[in-house]
Amino acid sequence: MTAFDSPLTHSRGAGKVLRRTLAVGLMVWFALPLLPLALWSFADRWSFPSALPTAFGLRSLDQAIAFGAVPALGRSLVLGVVVAVVATLVGALAARALTFGVVPGARLVSVLLLAPIALPPFAAVLGVNVVLLRAHVPSVVGVAMVLTVMALPYTAFIMRTAYGAYDPSYEEEARLLGAGRLQVLRRVQLPMIAPALARAAFLAFLVAWSDYIVTLIVGGGEVVTLPLVVASAAAGLGNDAAVALMSLSAVVPPVLLLLGVLAFGRRRRTLPMKEVVA
């Protein structure tokens, strides 16, 4: 028996096969509900009792464009990126301050950060909307502000977990070697917490991307995002193909972003520490 045939090697190989099988199974499980959407998206006619569409075409694309799906998609992307950037930055700053104990009343602050999850969204948004209207805050700014607050619990939690495993001695060593604050931030702290920042930004993006209530109430019809357009089209009759196409397009950006976050995290894990902080 060679070293490559040892029981330890067999155990690792079996575990790897099991993980890959589980990953493929999960991908199939989440992809199955998208199959009917894909069929509906390009079905010009799908009559009972046919198991598959009887006629395919691009009429759904024309309908989706007529509903305003393209500009709505652009607004959703911009809103998601803005909320992701701001919520991740604020969440990271709050998490660092709470982790290293420089905030008085840290427990109370932690509870306040988690409060948006505990409050009913509809009731909270109605109350906040009155304040925003009286303060003459523009609808776009109000929607971005409220969604950022709603995303903060997720970003703060992820970043606090990251800072809990963070070793400040790397920063101290860099300062001893003559690095300034910006150099320590850019070459030590940010590379070490980059995977956590990516995960936090992804969750914040999802909060803004999939929101309906905040955009509807606070936006007041001036901020029309993709979920609003999909809901409006779904309320009508004969728009099944257009609704399916827009729903399918709403899945694509989060999936691509998730794949990017996973690839980025895997790449960071494979880099040696000296290359991460270089």
Rank of each mutant, 00 (worst) to 15 (best):
P138N: 10
G13Q: 14
V224Q: 11
S47E: 14
L112G: 03
A69W: 01
L190A: 14
A72E: 09
L37N: 02
L52V: 11
F67R: 09
H136R: 14
M150N: 11
P138D: 05
M159E: 11
Q189F: 05
T161M: 09
L22W: 12
R75P: 00
W209I: 02
V28L: 15
A123G: 07
A204E: 01
A179F: 13
L22F: 14
T21G: 15
S247R: 05
P36A: 08
V17S: 00
V90P: 04
G180K: 06
A115Q: 03
R199V: 07
L262V: 15
W209V: 05
A244R: 04
P153G: 06
L248E: 04
A55H: 10
L133D: 13
F30Y: 13
D240R: 07
F157D: 02
K274W: 05
S47M: 06
L206N: 11
S60Q: 04
V90N: 07
A174E: 11
V17E: 00
L259W: 08
I65Y: 04
L37I: 03
R267T: 05
P33N: 02
P120F: 04
T2K: 11
A3G: 15
A92S: 15
G57F: 06
G101I: 02
V102I: 15
V137L: 15
L114C: 02
H136S: 13
L206S: 03
L61Q: 05
A144P: 04
L34Q: 06
R59M: 10
M27R: 02
M159W: 06
T54V: 09
L93R: 07
N239L: 08
R96A: 15
L271M: 14
V261M: 09
Y163D: 03
A118L: 15
L177A: 13
S139R: 15
L185S: 09
E172P: 06
L32M: 13
L35P: 03
P254G: 09
P195R: 03
E171Q: 12
P7G: 02
V223R: 01
V102M: 08
L8M: 12
Y154G: 00
V140C: 00
A55G: 01
E173R: 05
V111H: 03
R59E: 15
G164R: 13
A162Q: 12
R107S: 12
A3L: 13
T21N: 05
L39H: 03
E171M: 08
V146P: 01
Q63C: 00
V276S: 05
V218H: 01
